[in-house]
Amino acid sequence: MTKLKVAMIGLGMAAGHHARALLDLSDRIECVAAFSPTATRREAFAAEYPIPVTGDLDAIFADKAIEAVLILTPPSSHLELVQRCATAKKHILLEKPLDISFERSEAIVRAATDAGVLLAMVLQNRFRSAALKLDEIVRSGRLGQLIEASAAIRNWRPQSYYDVEGRGTMARDGGGVLLTQGIHTIDLLLSFAGSPKDVSAFVRTSPIHSMETEDLVTATFTYENGAIGTLNATTCAYPGLPERIELFGTKGTAAFTGAKLDAAFTDGTTITEGGEKSGSGAGANPMAFGHEMHRALIENFVDAIRNGAPLRVTGEDALKAHRFIAEILAASR
């Protein structure tokens, strides 16, 4: 089978992890172009990775040999780029979040669906071995009836992080800690427990940061089955703590912390999974983790295109997280 030809659009913070993952999978996939409008970014990328760079975005969409595009640009640019991919019939791997508003995010999912192209999301924590094991436990019913499902995202970002132009603004990012950092753990929580309802919330911008959007959130909610939950999300927790998801059921408890799962059941059995030394993005360097999860995500994307395998994280999945975030912000108002 011929290699899948792809292009990267955007050579910012996330590009290195994607480039390393693509090179790891070079027996199945070939990145034929990496675009940035900025010459210095193209030069820096080309000096580190053996991938052709370009400043010609139109050429990527015109090239019929390119079957898929990785969109790694700021959120405010996503809808228009997805629409161009959809028109050109190119499959899409999109960096989170979908876009800066729920309406634009819905339009992205609709554009891909109407064009009949795949839309996969870069919510790579779904591919942690501990997350895969917890998903298996929940689906098998080993926890019994879920009675509580809660999450904590306690990251640290110094003020210098928000001093980068556009970061933490509504115009570029669409929000703060929920949409930019928290969405990874929120996506996981919802994949295990379903969509919350009856949301109450406190949302703040703390004295630690000078920024437009929120850096401190606490929410409470219920689920369709009657279970309750809480969410705490912040970028104020120096020096950054591992994200945590806790599930309490009638037959056991599971705690997913960083890359490790510990589960204990009322029948006396236990399960431990993960704990890989893959790093964390909880501290001042948001990219301080390995590219292994990106590799697994991109491999799933290739399998979906070539073999019809189900995508592990779809645009519809991301839309559920966006809807919950919108409900938290609305409840706080």
Rank of each mutant, 00 (worst) to 15 (best):
L93E: 01
L93W: 05
L94Q: 13
E95C: 04
E95F: 04
E95T: 05
K96D: 14
K96L: 12
K96W: 12
K96Q: 13
P97T: 11
P97W: 00
P97I: 12
P97A: 12
L98G: 00
L98S: 01
L98Q: 00
L98W: 01
I100H: 10
I100R: 12
I100P: 06
S101P: 15
F102S: 07
F102D: 11
E103S: 14
R104V: 08
R104S: 15
R104F: 13
S105R: 11
S105K: 03
S105A: 15
E106I: 02
E106L: 13
A107D: 10
V109C: 15
R110N: 13
A111N: 04
A111F: 00
A112R: 08
A112W: 05
D114S: 11
D114K: 14
D114C: 01
D114P: 00
G116D: 03
V117R: 09
L118C: 07
L119E: 12
L119Q: 06
A120T: 12
A120V: 12
M121Q: 07
M121V: 02
V122K: 04
V122I: 11
V122R: 01
L123T: 12
N125I: 10
R126W: 03
R126K: 06
R126V: 02
F127M: 06
R128C: 03
S129R: 14
S129C: 08
A130Y: 03
A130R: 02
A131S: 15
L132N: 04
L132D: 05
K133Y: 06
K133R: 13
L134V: 01
L134W: 03
D135K: 10
D135V: 00
E136D: 15
I137V: 08
R139E: 09
S140P: 08
R142F: 05
L143T: 01
L143I: 04
L143V: 06
L143E: 03
G144T: 09
G144M: 10
Q145E: 13
L146T: 02
L146C: 05
E148K: 04
E148V: 00
E148H: 12
E148F: 02
E148I: 04
A149N: 03
A149L: 08
S150E: 06
S150N: 06
S150R: 09
A151I: 00
A151F: 00
A151W: 00
